[in-house]
Computed example of a mutant assay.
Amino acid sequence: MPARLRTALVGLVALLTTAATVAAAAPSAATAPAAPGEQRPGWTLRPAPGDGSRPYAYAEGAPGAVLEDRLTVTNPGTAPLTVRLRPADDPEQGPTERPAQGAAQGVGRWIALAAPAVTVPPRTRADVPYTLTVPAGAAPGDHPAAVLATVTDGAEGRPAQETAVRIRLRVTGPALAALSVEGLAAEGATLRYTLVNRGNTVLEPRVLLTADGLLGTAFRRAARGVPAELRPGQRVAVSETWRGAPALDRVDVRVSATAAGEARAAASVTVTFVPWARLATAALLAAALALLARRAVRRRRSRAGPAASAPQPGTERHLTRAGT
Results as ranks from 00 to 15, higher is better:
8 A>M: 12
8 A>Q: 09
8 A>R: 11
10 V>K: 12
12 L>Y: 08
17 T>F: 03
17 T>Q: 08
21 T>Y: 12
23 A>H: 10
27 P>I: 10
27 P>L: 09
36 P>D: 02
39 Q>I: 09
39 Q>E: 09
40 R>S: 13
41 P>E: 10
43 W>H: 00
46 R>H: 06
51 D>I: 15
52 G>V: 00
53 S>M: 00
54 R>I: 01
56 Y>Q: 06
61 G>C: 05
62 A>I: 02
69 D>N: 11
75 N>F: 13
75 N>K: 06
77 G>L: 05
79 A>R: 15
89 D>S: 08
90 D>G: 11
93 Q>C: 00
93 Q>E: 15
95 P>Q: 05
95 P>S: 04
100 A>P: 07
100 A>M: 03
102 G>T: 12
102 G>Y: 11
108 G>R: 05
108 G>I: 10
110 W>N: 06
111 I>V: 15
111 I>Q: 00
116 P>L: 05
117 A>Q: 15
120 V>T: 09
122 P>A: 05
126 A>N: 04
126 A>T: 13
127 D>W: 09
130 Y>K: 06
135 P>K: 04
136 A>P: 01
136 A>K: 03
137 G>L: 08
138 A>C: 08
144 P>K: 07
145 A>P: 01
147 V>W: 10
153 D>T: 02
153 D>I: 02
153 D>F: 04
154 G>N: 04
155 A>Y: 06
160 A>E: 05
161 Q>G: 03
163 T>L: 09
164 A>E: 11
165 V>A: 12
171 V>P: 06
172 T>V: 04
175 A>D: 09
179 L>E: 11
181 V>K: 12
182 E>Q: 14
191 L>G: 00
196 V>C: 09
197 N>D: 10
199 G>I: 02
199 G>L: 08
199 G>H: 03
201 T>N: 06
201 T>E: 15
202 V>N: 01
203 L>N: 07
205 P>E: 00
206 R>S: 15
207 V>K: 04
210 T>F: 04
211 A>H: 01
211 A>S: 07
211 A>N: 06
212 D>T: 13
212 D>V: 13
215 L>K: 13
217 T>D: 05
223 A>F: 05
225 G>T: 08
225 G>D: 12
233 G>R: 05
235 R>E: 07
236 V>C: 00
238 V>T: 05
240 E>F: 04
248 L>V: 14
252 D>E: 14
264 R>P: 03
265 A>C: 07
265 A>F: 03
266 A>G: 12
267 A>I: 08
267 A>L: 02
271 V>H: 08
272 T>M: 04
273 F>K: 00
274 V>Q: 04
275 P>R: 04
283 A>V: 15
285 L>W: 14
288 A>F: 00
291 L>D: 11
292 L>C: 07
296 A>T: 08
309 S>W: 09
309 S>H: 13
314 G>R: 05
315 T>Y: 11
316 E>N: 11
316 E>A: 14
318 H>Q: 15
320 T>N: 05
321 R>W: 07
